[in-house]
């Protein structure tokens, strides 16, 4: 199938892009297109205008300081995977990037595009929620900063207004002493996750985020409480029950999430995880 007709715009500057976004009806921002093009090809979406922001040089830059790294919106997964941009999370970002789709997809897909697409079974929504990243958003009406946890409202739904453009993604530095674990369970390499668990283990505290369980990534508060209250390893059944309470999932899905979380915890603690190589 071929896309329905649209008009194509390729602004050179953010200002020009914002002008187009403000004035055009039924416009959509095009980044790397790795999520949008399949949808256009299948005619599941038919925007009247596409505003291609990949020609805007300003959106390719990154800035780093003590607090973290700010990535331009069109930073590709490949740039993160290959270390062409700094990683403030001690290996978590390149690790996550390497699991996205296939190499040819990572060469074009962008970090901001993935967030704007808002699919909780993709890597960035969960990883960047766990790291408490934020997006910088601009429109002709002004600028704002939206934490990723507040940006993602549902499947394909975000807090972005129609005239707003994500210009950068700001990822805070992972605190000293925090160890991360990430387990993606998918049927095949490159597939979207069936479960995606991120654990951040600090002395006295464990934070757990789960993707592919609900329409947005969820923090497993109940599970964290159960873990905090337990001494020694926790039984998978008990973990599954807590995750069920956190996510509303049941049966096989709940089991899968429990295994992902347990393995992510083990990875964060530096334990050998059987099978983690297969699913990561």
């Amino acid at each position: 199938m071929k896309p329905a007709e649209f008009a194509y715009h390729r602004p050179d500057s953010v200002e020009e892009a914002l002008g187009l976004l403000g004035e055009l009806e039924e416009a959509k921002v095009l980044g790397g297109g790795q999520s949008l093009l399949p949808i256009l090809n299948m005619r599941l979406a038919a925007p009247a205008h596409l505003i291609d922001i990949t020609g805007i040089r300003a959106l390719r830059r990154f800035e780093e300081d003590d607090s973290g790294v700010r990535y331009g919106a069109v930073t590709t997964h490949m740039m993160i995977e290959d270390g062409l941009v700094p990683d403030p999370a001690r290996g978590l970002l390149p690790h996550a990037a390497a699991g996205i789709g296939y190499r040819a997809v990572r060469n074009r897909g962008t970090i901001a595009g993935s967030l704007a697409h808002s699919d909780s079974s993709a890597e960035w929504p969960t990883v960047l929620s766990a790291l408490d990243a934020a997006v910088h958003v601009r429109s002709n009406r002004g600028d704002r900063r939206i934490p990723v946890r507040e940006l993602l409202l549902g499947f394909f739904t975000t807090a972005l207004a129609e005239d707003e453009l994500i210009t950068a993604v700001e990822v805070p530095r992972l605190r000293e002493g925090t160890r991360w674990g990430m387990v993606k369970m998918a049927r095949k390499p490159g597939e979207f996750a069936e479960s995606l668990a991120i654990t951040l283990v600090r002395p006295g505290e464990t934070e757990i985020w789960l993707g592919a369980a609900r329409d947005v990534p969820v923090r497993l508060a109940e599970t964290e409480t159960v873990l905090a209250g337990s001494i020694g390893p926790i039984a998978l059944e008990q973990l599954a029950e807590a995750i069920g309470a956190d996510t509303g999932s049941s049966g096989y899905e709940r089991q899968r999430h429990a295994v992902a979380v347990r393995r992510a915890l083990e990875t964060a603690r530096g334990e050998t995880v059987r099978g983690a190589e297969v699913h990561v």
Partner: peptide
């Protein structure tokens, strides 16, 4: 034309990409 099979892979600025998921216009 869904970006999965890889038969349309070409090199764009030396990197493999899916030609089915890349607009001609973006290749200016």
């Amino acid at each position: 034309e869904q970006g999965v099979c890889g038969a349309c892979t070409v090199l764009l600025d030396e990197l493999p990409v899916r030609a089915c998921l890349t607009l001609a216009a973006s290749c200016q």
